[in-house]
């Protein structure tokens, strides 16, 4: 095992443990913080993949905004700080079975795919992924349309969220 692999394994295992705690822990606030830990792990995975922009955006967007939003939402939707009752519904066993089934199916598919043993090509020395990404996002030949649609989606979500959550009194 090389250092890369060790780092990856450590990060991946930590991430998966955090993710598992997200879905099993009884305390929702803890779940949200575990989610933050899992998202940090994913950011680290991005960093290992040399996707530095994605890693930082993961921190800014997910941890800086989305998780905080979750914590807000958790706190706003409870009358007191303690959690009552079981946190899993009656069908959780069946849900676990289905999730496991999905995992088995996915692993089966991954296993059967020929490209799975690929190793990463050398990172081109003069290639700046961030500027390439920036150019791709605003180039008419590339992804300016999805980019603009995403912007519109965000504006619509902003307006919609304010409208839905607005307290008319």
């Amino acid at each position: 095992m090389t250092i890369d692999q060790i780092i990856f394994l450590v990060v991946a295992v930590a991430t998966l443990i955090a993710a598992f705690r997200v879905v099993t822990t009884g305390n929702l606030i803890h779940a949200a913080f575990w989610l933050i830990a899992a998202l940090f792990g994913v950011a680290a995975i991005f960093a290992i993949l040399h996707a530095s922009f994605l890693a930082v955006v993961q921190v800014v967007v997910y941890i800086g905004a989305i998780s905080i939003l979750f914590i807000f939402a958790v706190m706003l939707t409870r009358k007191d700080m303690r959690d009552q009752g079981p946190q899993l519904n009656r069908n959780w066993g069946f849900g676990a079975f289905l999730a496991a089934l999905a995992l088995v199916g996915l692993v089966f598919l991954v296993h059967g795919w020929s490209g799975v043993t690929k190793t990463a090509p050398a990172f081109p020395s003069e290639f700046d992924a961030v500027s390439a990404l920036g150019n791709a996002l605003v180039s008419p030949d590339a992804y300016v349309l999805p980019f603009e649609v995403a912007s519109v989606l965000l504006v619509a979500a902003l307006v919609g969220a304010v409208y839905v959550a607005y307290n008319r009194k």
Partner: peptide, 20 residues
């Protein structure tokens, strides 16, 4: 909603398996 989702997932897996 979760029951609907389970139903959808079952069908998805079933159809995927049949297709594959």
């Amino acid at each position: 909603i979760q029951q609907y989702l389970m139903l959808a997932l079952i069908l998805f897996i079933a159809i995927g398996a049949v297709l594959y």
